[in-house]
Design a protein around this nucleic acid. Structure first.
Lengths: 339, 339
DNA sequence: TTGAAAGCGCTAACAA
DNA sequence: TTGTTAGCGCTTTCAA
């Protein structure tokens, strides 16, 4: 049961450990006699040698591990993203360490430090909040960081996201084309870039269509949840301000809105249309099927991982590239002509 | 940007590195002067000391990392399970390393070896197949392994799952109570324990209700997917054997079945009832809402993690405990009285 | 082309 | 109660 060490392989091949090390390292192999290489490889195979990554990492200061900091992995938004990242990472010989912060910013900080202690080579962070100066400093000075899905206000770190503005514009355009003029927005938390971005896009779109955009027409959720969708819809409905369409900041909020409408006997889409954002799994099958904006989540994960690997290898100084991947409006059953 | 080492802390506190190490280790702290402890802690805090887990792991042969081997993290069955495990693990000072095998058994083997090379202390494996002798040997001889959701045929490793038999019995009982007598089963792959277990439970339940269980009444899916649900439903429908209810081996298969029924103009639940298994997110909102069996996924993840931690600490010899957590039939819109 | 020796940062055995 | 010493398994100078 004792693990086979490099020294064992070396002995079996009749060479010194240093030579075995070189023979097994593709980058250094050329400085070694072909026959020696072969002998070492054979011995390694025969003994079932598995290199000790801890020892290697200690020596090389590289762990070939990447930390993924996720607010809540059971939110179905994140798994495709994580999967995309994992594929790219493992293809490049990296291993993904997952931490779930439970949407707690203190936990984010903690995990960042903890994983840095573990020698992680870089981070993919999906938990960024708008004024997360600590995170920016960390990414600037402590370890390579790539932000995904949510950006920080400073914009100092590389970021991969969806094109929120276009997505919201597409929603508003779609609703206006259906004849809607009184449209409200269930905004995401202003503590997140996605919340802010989508809200400001909504305001811009409304303006460009010359819709009224009184404060009353926007209600801010404190979280991207169904419960908050219910609460804000209730708030808007109770305000007396009438509307025929809702642009929700994401799918869960939209689902909550639909629940509250239903609870009040208001029909969707006949009386009030609703749009979501993200196109979570099964949103094509919920009843009514949700009109929403599809984000290329897998691609986002992949690109975030690739960007991070670049940053790790080049040790390049914080090229704060900001890539917005194209999104797509998916028209389904929750939107219909205004009556 | 140079990381603070233990030696730096020790120097700042005016003690030897070994003393600093002891002072910072809760388990050894009592052998150290209270004042010294305080001084070291202060120095560590002031300098922002983060222990190097690689070095520690190399020395102690413990990495405080656990590998989670998942077939496909974007299958919404797994995230709650991973989340449950992550919570328990991180509370115990462990870090979760995630690998997604893409349902590929060769990838499973590879990842197991790779992660063992990384010094991982144990594994939570959700990819087990029925005759995965390699995995059993690995778990018996190479590293602590706990199986979750899917078991191996040998039953040699600790396993945490849902009570599949009871779940299927509940489905059949429910359908029979609604007056159904001609019930078919869309079986999961016989390469998985869940597939086999649910099939055999279906047969037993049918027998106990004195339903006919000809081979024709069971169609086996090659994977737990919607596509296979479609294919097998088509097969059964085309066989000419008539039926009024379908017990699907999981939710995705059930969804596929519903699609195929709809494509043929057969109404669900009016003409044919359907039951699923797992209660994936949003199954309460799909149309029609899915009658299914709820698995306590988070608890399964938590318990798997706890079991693994025990096995790691006790280094106990493969107590192949098999824990089946209770499941619950959720009656919804895809089941109705037989006509 | 290969070997010798040192050291990554930490902890455990032993000594004082 | 603290310090000294050694070594976890690997890679990397440097020397041969």
């Amino acid at each position: 049961m004792n693990r086979v060490r490099l020294a064992d392989v070396a002995q079996a091949a009749g060479v010194h450990a240093a030579t075995a090390s070189r023979a097994l390292n593709p980058a250094k192999r050329d400085g070694v006699n072909r026959k020696t290489v072969r002998r070492v490889e054979l011995a390694a195979q025969r003994l079932g040698y598995v290199p000790n990554a801890l020892a290697r990492g200690l020596r090389t200061q590289r762990s070939y591990m990447v930390g993924a900091v996720i607010p809540d992995i059971s939110n179905t938004l994140f798994p495709p993203l994580v999967r995309g990242a994992e594929r790219v990472l493992s293809a490049a010989g990296y291993t993904l360490v997952l931490t779930d912060t439970n949407n707690d910013i203190a936990a984010e900080r903690e995990q960042l430090a903890l994983l840095q202690g573990r020698g992680v080579d870089g981070f993919i962070v999906a938990t960024a909040t708008w004024d997360d100066a600590d995170l920016e400093q960390f990414g600037l000075h402590s370890a390579p960081v790539v932000l995904v899905n949510r950006n920080t206000g400073g914009g100092l770190l590389p970021y991969v996201g969806g094109d929120d503005r276009r997505g919201i514009h597409a929603c508003v355009d779609h609703l206006v084309a259906l004849g809607h003029r009184r449209i409200v927005h269930l905004a995401g938390p202003s503590s997140t870039s996605t919340g802010r971005e989508r809200t400001s896009a909504f305001q811009a779109a409304a303006r460009s269509h010359r819709l009224s955009v009184s404060k009353r027409r926007i209600a801010e959720c404190t979280a991207f949840t169904q419960e908050e969708g219910i609460r804000t819809t209730r708030e808007l409905l109770d305000s007396g301000d009438s509307f025929t369409a809702i642009v929700a900041a994401n799918d869960l909020i939209a689902l909550g809105a639909i629940d509250e409408l239903r609870a009040r006997g208001i029909r969707c889409p006949e009386t009030v249309s609703v749009t979501g954002f993200n196109d979570l799994p099964f949103m094509d099958r919920v009843s009514p099927s949700l009109t929403t904006v599809r984000l290329p989540l897998r691609e986002m994960g992949e690109l975030a991982a690739k960007t991070l690997l670049q940053r790790i290898d080049l040790t390049d100084i914080a090229s704060a590239a900001r890539v917005l991947l194209p999104v797509q409006l998916i028209e389904r059953g929750t939107t219909a002509p205004a009556c």
